[in-house]
Amino acid sequence: MNINYEVKKATRQSYGEALKELGEKYNDIVVLDADLSSATKTELFAKEFPNRFFDIGIAEQDMMGTAAGLATCNKIPYVSTFAVFAAGRAYDQIRNSICYPKLNVKICATHCGVTVGEDGATHQMLEDISLMRTLPNMTVVSVSDDTQAKWAVQEIYNINGPVYLRLARLATPIIYDANDKFEIGKGIQIGDGTDATVIATGVTVAEAIKAKEKLQSEGKNIRVIDMHTIKPIDKDIIIKAAKETKHIITVEDHSIIGGLGSSVCEVLSENYPKIVHRMGIKDTFGKSGKAEELLKYFKIDSNAICEKITKLV
């Protein structure tokens, strides 16, 4: 794996591009947004297919309900807004109007985590993985790069039921080749080091890989797991890592409560008890700043991962 860290793209951009392509392929796709189409990038679809694009205005609850109604009539709605307004503000609508009736709505939420940056705490969603994975019938996907995001936008079309797709604002390195294969519910193991495993998701995957490369030069062999599907979680890859490596570290741009770290703890506590070191946002709100500065401030960047592992190994 040779990553060019200079070539970057935000997964929200990949989403917008993939959605436009998907719209050409499938007539039953409709897209809804809540006055954020230029930020969520659904505008790319809107320009191409104005009749199948619905701007519901600043009304996320109504947007989710409208999508539910469309889904009862065999439409496949892709619904977008910022993660905080999707999973947070419209939680009850997602719960009662989408997940309980198991309607085929794809909630593609952009601007997750502290990497939203300057907008600050009100706009930095740190609880969405937690809120969404607890809902029955929901699939939760959190992609790490352009290639994976484009795959996911297409792949979730084939899932018969609600999906939460977590997308980021921050442009991050392209990790995978266009030919790389992914599978819902199957994490990706990068390297087979046995000193420690870093399980990451979304924007922290590139940080973990960077840390892995750096530690390698110091003689420490790390394995990274890109956990792009949070639910259903890949139990096997976690248990295997716990058996084969000395330490387990999770890192996420999300609260350490209820997110990836908690998911890994749940798997290991029931199957192969082992200490899990959770890196993420530690029961606090975010703050304004540049996205890269915030990754550093909240200790979820490659340097923080290196420090953590250096202490452990």
Partner: peptide, 10 residues
């Protein structure tokens, strides 16, 4: 009403 709107739009 939101769901009904969705059905009507469809």
């Amino acid at each position: 009403l939101s769901a009904a709107n969705g059905m009507a739009i469809a």
